[in-house]
Amino acid sequence: MTEYKLVVVGAGGVGKSALTIQLIQNHFVDEYDPTIEDSYRKQVVIDGETCLLDILDTAGQEEYSAMRDQYMRTGEGFLCVFAINNTKSFEDIHHYREQIKRVKDSEDVPMVLVGNKCDLPSRTVDTKQAQDLARSYGIPFIETSAKTRQGVDDAFYTLVREIRKHKEKMSKDGKKKKKKSKTKCVIM
């Protein structure tokens, strides 16, 4: 069974824990209790493949930012979460993405942009803004509501699919490099 290491990042209060708990335990946590770091595991079937999701729910508070490099190193894919009623959390996505790329030393890291709290009427981040940002990053965008469960499975499952595509691409690139290195030079 394939294991996928997913990391949920975003500013404090955007609903990272609520999304994760909704996926794992099928219930909505409405009281806000700032996370330092929590880890969850769940076995699911995605596109006919049974897999184990190892999900790291991270601290959004700035005082825990020193811990970010460590979990970013171990993560295979990242859910970059903002709240649709919090423009600052949307603007912060850029910083999370840049930090992930720096730590992973790669421009090509599996990510999904997630606009959470889409059940709320007080939207300050337009869907088109988020779609445009995701398009500019070359990553999928999904709106979710941890409260109603809308888009929750889709967000995590899409990230797994992005990781699969990335692994497939990397193995193809690896095979191309191996083929090239088999060419021999004969000096007579």
Results as ranks from 00 to 15, higher is better:
residue 2 T to G: 09
residue 2 T to V: 07
residue 3 E to N: 11
residue 3 E to C: 03
residue 3 E to D: 10
residue 5 K to Y: 02
residue 5 K to R: 14
residue 5 K to Q: 14
residue 5 K to G: 13
residue 6 L to H: 02
residue 6 L to S: 02
residue 6 L to K: 03
residue 8 V to N: 01
residue 9 V to I: 13
residue 9 V to W: 14
residue 9 V to H: 14
residue 9 V to D: 03
residue 10 G to K: 03
residue 10 G to W: 05
residue 10 G to R: 04
residue 13 G to V: 14
residue 15 G to C: 15
residue 16 K to A: 00
residue 16 K to W: 02
residue 17 S to A: 00
residue 18 A to E: 00
residue 18 A to Q: 04
residue 18 A to T: 05
residue 19 L to F: 07
residue 19 L to A: 14
residue 19 L to K: 10
residue 20 T to P: 02
residue 20 T to F: 04
residue 20 T to Q: 15
residue 21 I to F: 07
residue 21 I to Y: 10
residue 21 I to D: 03
residue 24 I to E: 11
residue 24 I to Q: 14
residue 24 I to H: 05
residue 24 I to W: 10
residue 24 I to M: 04
residue 26 N to Y: 15
residue 27 H to M: 10
residue 27 H to S: 07
residue 28 F to E: 00
residue 29 V to M: 08
residue 29 V to N: 08
residue 30 D to F: 07
residue 30 D to N: 10
residue 30 D to C: 07
residue 32 Y to W: 13
residue 32 Y to A: 00
residue 33 D to N: 06
residue 33 D to P: 01
residue 33 D to M: 15
residue 34 P to M: 03
residue 34 P to N: 00
residue 34 P to V: 06
residue 34 P to H: 00
residue 37 E to C: 01
residue 37 E to A: 00
residue 37 E to P: 02
residue 37 E to G: 00
residue 37 E to F: 00
residue 38 D to N: 03
residue 38 D to I: 00
residue 38 D to A: 01
residue 38 D to K: 00
residue 38 D to G: 00
residue 39 S to A: 12
residue 39 S to Q: 05
residue 39 S to P: 00
residue 40 Y to F: 09
residue 40 Y to W: 08
residue 41 R to L: 04
residue 41 R to E: 02
residue 42 K to T: 04
residue 42 K to L: 06
residue 42 K to S: 06
residue 43 Q to K: 03
residue 43 Q to F: 03
residue 44 V to H: 03
residue 44 V to F: 03
residue 45 V to H: 05
residue 45 V to W: 03
residue 45 V to M: 07
residue 46 I to R: 09
residue 46 I to H: 04
residue 48 G to D: 09
residue 49 E to D: 08
residue 49 E to G: 09
residue 52 L to C: 05
residue 52 L to M: 06
residue 52 L to Q: 04
residue 54 D to R: 00
residue 55 I to F: 02
residue 56 L to N: 01
residue 56 L to K: 00
residue 57 D to Q: 00
residue 57 D to S: 00
residue 58 T to N: 01
residue 58 T to C: 06
residue 59 A to I: 15
residue 61 Q to C: 15
residue 61 Q to F: 15
residue 62 E to M: 14
residue 62 E to W: 10
residue 63 E to R: 00
residue 63 E to K: 01
residue 63 E to L: 02
residue 64 Y to W: 15
residue 64 Y to T: 15
residue 64 Y to R: 00
residue 65 S to H: 10
residue 66 A to N: 08
residue 66 A to F: 09
residue 67 M to R: 00
residue 67 M to F: 02
residue 67 M to A: 00
residue 68 R to C: 15
residue 68 R to S: 15
residue 69 D to I: 04
residue 69 D to T: 05
residue 69 D to G: 02
residue 69 D to Y: 02
residue 70 Q to E: 02
residue 70 Q to Y: 00
residue 71 Y to H: 15
residue 71 Y to W: 15
residue 71 Y to E: 15
residue 72 M to N: 14
residue 72 M to K: 01
residue 73 R to A: 11
residue 74 T to F: 15
residue 74 T to Q: 15
residue 74 T to P: 15
residue 75 G to I: 14
residue 76 E to F: 09
residue 77 G to A: 14
residue 77 G to D: 03
residue 78 F to L: 10
residue 78 F to M: 14
residue 78 F to Q: 01
residue 78 F to W: 02
residue 79 L to C: 10
residue 79 L to R: 04
residue 80 C to M: 13
residue 80 C to S: 04
residue 81 V to R: 01
residue 81 V to E: 14
residue 81 V to W: 04
residue 81 V to H: 14
residue 82 F to R: 01
residue 83 A to E: 15
residue 83 A to C: 11
residue 83 A to R: 06
residue 83 A to H: 10
residue 84 I to D: 15
residue 84 I to Y: 15
residue 85 N to S: 05
residue 86 N to I: 03
residue 86 N to D: 14
residue 88 K to G: 10
residue 88 K to S: 09
residue 88 K to Q: 07
residue 90 F to S: 10
residue 90 F to I: 06
residue 90 F to G: 05
residue 94 H to R: 15
residue 96 Y to F: 10
residue 96 Y to W: 03
residue 96 Y to D: 02
residue 97 R to F: 15
residue 98 E to A: 06
residue 100 I to F: 08
residue 101 K to N: 06
residue 102 R to H: 12
residue 102 R to P: 03
residue 103 V to E: 14
residue 104 K to G: 07
residue 105 D to V: 04
residue 105 D to M: 10
residue 106 S to F: 11
residue 106 S to V: 13
residue 107 E to Q: 11
residue 107 E to W: 09
residue 108 D to C: 08
residue 109 V to G: 03
residue 110 P to L: 04
residue 110 P to T: 07
residue 110 P to C: 04
residue 110 P to E: 01
residue 111 M to D: 04
residue 111 M to V: 10
residue 111 M to G: 00
residue 111 M to L: 10
residue 112 V to N: 01
residue 113 L to W: 14
residue 113 L to C: 12
residue 114 V to H: 05
residue 114 V to C: 06
residue 114 V to F: 05
residue 115 G to P: 04
residue 115 G to R: 04
residue 115 G to K: 02
residue 116 N to H: 14
residue 116 N to M: 15
residue 116 N to Q: 13
residue 116 N to C: 15
residue 116 N to R: 03
residue 116 N to D: 13
residue 117 K to T: 15
residue 118 C to T: 12
residue 118 C to A: 13
residue 118 C to D: 11
residue 119 D to R: 02
residue 119 D to Q: 07
residue 120 L to V: 12
residue 120 L to P: 11
residue 120 L to G: 14
residue 121 P to C: 11
residue 121 P to G: 13
residue 121 P to F: 10
residue 122 S to C: 11
residue 122 S to M: 13
residue 122 S to W: 10
residue 123 R to K: 11
residue 123 R to H: 11
residue 123 R to N: 13
residue 124 T to A: 11
residue 124 T to E: 12
residue 125 V to C: 10
residue 125 V to H: 11
residue 126 D to S: 10
residue 126 D to F: 09
residue 126 D to W: 08
residue 126 D to T: 09
residue 126 D to A: 09
residue 126 D to E: 10
residue 127 T to I: 10
residue 127 T to W: 07
residue 127 T to Y: 08
residue 127 T to P: 09
residue 128 K to P: 09
residue 129 Q to G: 14
residue 130 A to T: 09
residue 130 A to G: 08
residue 130 A to L: 10
residue 130 A to V: 09
residue 131 Q to G: 12
residue 131 Q to W: 11
residue 131 Q to D: 11
residue 132 D to Y: 07
residue 132 D to C: 07
residue 132 D to R: 08
residue 133 L to I: 10
residue 133 L to V: 11
residue 134 A to T: 07
residue 136 S to F: 09
residue 136 S to P: 12
residue 137 Y to C: 09
residue 137 Y to G: 08
residue 137 Y to S: 14
residue 137 Y to K: 08
residue 137 Y to F: 06
residue 137 Y to L: 13
residue 137 Y to M: 14
residue 138 G to W: 05
residue 139 I to W: 06
residue 139 I to D: 01
residue 142 I to C: 14
residue 145 S to V: 07
residue 146 A to I: 01
residue 149 R to L: 03
residue 149 R to E: 07
residue 150 Q to S: 15
residue 150 Q to L: 11
residue 151 G to N: 13
residue 152 V to F: 04
residue 155 A to I: 06
residue 155 A to W: 02
residue 155 A to H: 01
residue 156 F to R: 00
residue 156 F to K: 01
residue 156 F to W: 05
residue 157 Y to E: 12
residue 157 Y to F: 09
residue 159 L to R: 13
residue 159 L to A: 08
residue 159 L to N: 04
residue 162 E to F: 03
residue 163 I to T: 14
residue 164 R to G: 07
residue 165 K to M: 07
residue 165 K to G: 14
residue 166 H to R: 09
residue 167 K to Q: 09
residue 169 K to W: 07
residue 169 K to A: 06
residue 169 K to C: 12
residue 169 K to N: 08
residue 169 K to F: 13
residue 169 K to T: 03
residue 170 M to W: 15
residue 170 M to A: 15
residue 172 K to Y: 14
residue 172 K to V: 11
residue 172 K to I: 11
residue 174 G to S: 10
residue 175 K to L: 05
residue 176 K to W: 05
residue 176 K to S: 13
residue 176 K to R: 06
residue 176 K to C: 10
residue 177 K to V: 08
residue 177 K to I: 12
residue 177 K to N: 10
residue 178 K to S: 07
residue 178 K to W: 04
residue 182 K to M: 11
residue 183 T to C: 03
residue 184 K to M: 03
residue 184 K to W: 09
residue 184 K to A: 05
residue 184 K to G: 14
residue 185 C to L: 03
residue 185 C to G: 14
residue 186 V to G: 13
residue 187 I to F: 09
residue 188 M to P: 15
